[in-house]
């Protein structure tokens, strides 16, 4: 006990396991945040089964699938960038982190086109077109914009974090012997990926 306190007092002690645990506990709060929305989704889908079906039929499944592939691939490049830094391949790690950020950007660009098309068709929150379609479809689009939008904000947050990691890696703060920050950024990015893994079938693939 005494030993531990001493080490902590000097502030040189690094605790990667503790740092990762902190990140995981934060990820559990994200589970609560999105969990509540998934509960709302499942209840409203249960109550308005037919309308959810009709609304989902109009979704752009191609863009949804493309974005799934992009996000899954970006998760892989993120995981690879950690392996690279573990092996001391600084340049490779930087390239892989950059690819991850660019894929996040591409995801958002696709989202922009998808939402623009929806807006053009009059399917924006509170629009007369949606109100005419009835409460079931209005709820579907409400949940779609809320959940996919909140997920989009997480993509932006994840990209921001990875850009910081990119700078840290270039400066050498993140290196072969100390890369816990990069691992935690990766954990966040993978969580964003997992949330999309569930959003994709729930919003694009109802048949």
């Amino acid at each position: 006990m005494g030993n531990h306190e001493n080490t902590a007092a000097v502030h040189t002690h690094k605790d990667p396991v503790g740092a990762r645990m902190g990140m995981w506990i934060f990820l559990f709060t994200e589970l609560l945040l999105f969990g509540g929305l998934f509960f709302a989704y499942s209840v409203y889908r249960y109550l308005h089964h037919e309308q959810f079906h009709q609304a989902a039929m109009q979704m752009n499944t191609f863009l949804g699938t493309l974005n799934t592939i992009i996000l899954l691939t970006s998760s892989m490049t993120m995981a690879l960038s950690i392996t690279a830094i573990q092996r001391g391949k600084k340049i490779l790690s930087i390239i892989l982190q950059l690819i991850t950020v660019l894929m996040g950007a591409q995801f958002l660009v696709n989202k922009y086109f998808e939402w623009s098309a929806e807006f053009a068709r009059g399917n924006y929150p509170g629009s007369p077109t949606l109100i005419a379609k009835g409460s079931g479809q209005t709820l579907y689009y409400g949940l779609y914009y809320t959940m996919v939008g909140l997920h989009g904000l997480h993509v932006i947050a994840g990209m921001t974090v990875i850009i910081f990691m990119l700078v840290f890696t270039i400066r050498g703060t993140i290196n072969k012997n100390d890369y816990t920050k990069l691992e935690n950024a990766g954990l966040y990015w993978h969580l964003v990926d997992i949330i999309w893994i569930f959003l994709y079938p729930l919003f694009y693939l109802i048949t």
Partner: peptide, 25 residues
């Protein structure tokens, strides 16, 4: 640390995505 396993898992994820998209039809 190993690159191979991540690429394998990525391929499995893509295969599962294709499966879920096809099965949805």
């Amino acid at each position: 640390a190993n690159y191979g396993i991540y690429i394998l898992v990525w391929l499995a994820l893509l295969a599962l995505t294709a499966t879920t998209a096809i099965v949805a039809g």
